[in-house]
């Protein structure tokens, strides 16, 4: 067997971030789609404000002199090429990484992302208005899913694959916590019975947004409550987007980098994984809810940022970890 080929640090970083940006795009499309279903008559704006809050984009929106109307928020996330947290910027960054990675990725991966980038870059206001929004979100999701499928079937499984997967899993775990958080930010109005039904509707919306609705039905029982949904999304290792599954896979990938490829820098990152595991899995959902879901999710997000920072410090070129990451969780641009 030939000796394993070396992987440039810059390529590892590019794979990590390409995967992250694409995963982010898919999740943002899911969030936008579900937000629309949360619109309640007469209170349309509330749902869109919640979307802004869970992405911590209040300042960015204010800087543009915008208020969180449905139109402004949709434009902000789907069309605005200058919004650092929007789909356009993330796709641009994903493609730039793909371009850097062209010596490494399959031609089919590059071709798909190239076409996807062109298609999404050409979206206009008319494409996201009214009943067009949901189909557009579906197209965006499917674009990323096509990428994922092509990658799964064509990307060479050397250590580069591990870095690609690490980026995707960290982002996915982060996004699942944000999706859970959206519920926290939505105010429910009315009497207690009315509220209970409205809350259930919202939890169902969250489950649908992460494609977990039917699976949850099978495992969640008839008389489910908030605690069951939270347990499902945090702890159920059969659910592809649960935080626990992401953490377990991250653990396996780091271990593989160490054992198969002899990368010695994994120690600090593995310690972070241990902390995440203890923090997430070690706490029952009921206690999480009792102690405050939002604070808990914030903590998980912080741990994920620290984990990404450890991976960057150990393996990437010119990584400036925490000060940049804690603000925007975007790739450090190097000359």
């Amino acid at each position: 067997m030939p000796r394993p080929a070396p992987l440039l640090a810059r390529y590892a970083e590019g794979l990590f971030w390409m995967a992250r940006y694409l995963e982010r795009i898919e999740n943002l499309a899911r969030l936008v789609d579900v937000t629309q279903t949360f619109e309640s008559p007469g209170r349309e704006t509330e749902a869109w404000q919640a979307l802004i809050r869970i992405n911590a984009d209040e300042d960015e929106l204010a800087r543009r002199g915008l208020t969180a109307t449905p139109e402004a928020v949709k434009h902000f996330y789907l069309l605005d090429h200058a919004n650092p947290t929007g789909i356009q910027t993330s796709l641009e960054a994903a493609r730039t990484n793909a371009r850097t990675l062209r010596p490494l990725i399959s031609t089919e991966m590059w071709k798909q992302i190239n076409i996807f980038h062109r298609e999404i870059g050409a979206l206009t206001e008319a494409d996201i208005t009214g009943d067009q929004l949901s189909p557009v979100c579906a197209r965006i999701k499917e674009g990323v899913q096509a990428h994922t499928g092509i990658t799964e079937g064509t990307l060479f499984r050397d250590q580069g694959w591990c870095f690609y997967q690490l980026g995707r899993l960290i982002e996915r775990a982060d996004q699942t916590t944000r999706l859970l958080d959206i519920r926290y930010h939505l105010l429910v109005h009315g009497h207690s019975e009315e509220r209970r039904v409205a809350e259930l509707t919202q939890w169902n919306g969250v489950l649908r947004a992460v494609a977990g609705y039917h699976a949850f039905r099978r495992v969640g029982g008839a008389d489910f409550g908030a605690v069951d949904v939270v347990a499902f999304l945090l702890h159920d290792t059969s659910f592809p987007r649960s935080v626990a599954l992401c953490v377990a896979e991250i653990d396996a990938l780091l271990t593989r980098l160490r054992s198969r490829y002899g990368l010695r820098g994994t120690v600090a990152a593995l310690e972070r994984v241990e902390e995440l595991r203890a923090g997430v899995l070690g706490r029952p959902a009921a206690r999480v809810l009792a102690d405050g879901l939002h604070q808990f999710l914030d903590g998980v997000q912080r741990d994920l940022i620290l984990l990404a920072g450890e991976i960057g410090t150990a393996f990437f070129r010119d990584w400036r970890p925490l000060e940049a990451a804690s603000q925007s969780q975007s790739q450090t641009q190097t000359a």
Binding site: P6, L7, L8, A9, L263
Partner: peptide
């Protein structure tokens, strides 16, 4: 930026 010269030898920066 992927290359570095030390003691008149050229190296590339890899994950390892």
């Amino acid at each position: 930026a992927d290359l570095v010269v030390e003691n008149d030898r050229v190296w590339m920066r890899t994950t390892a």
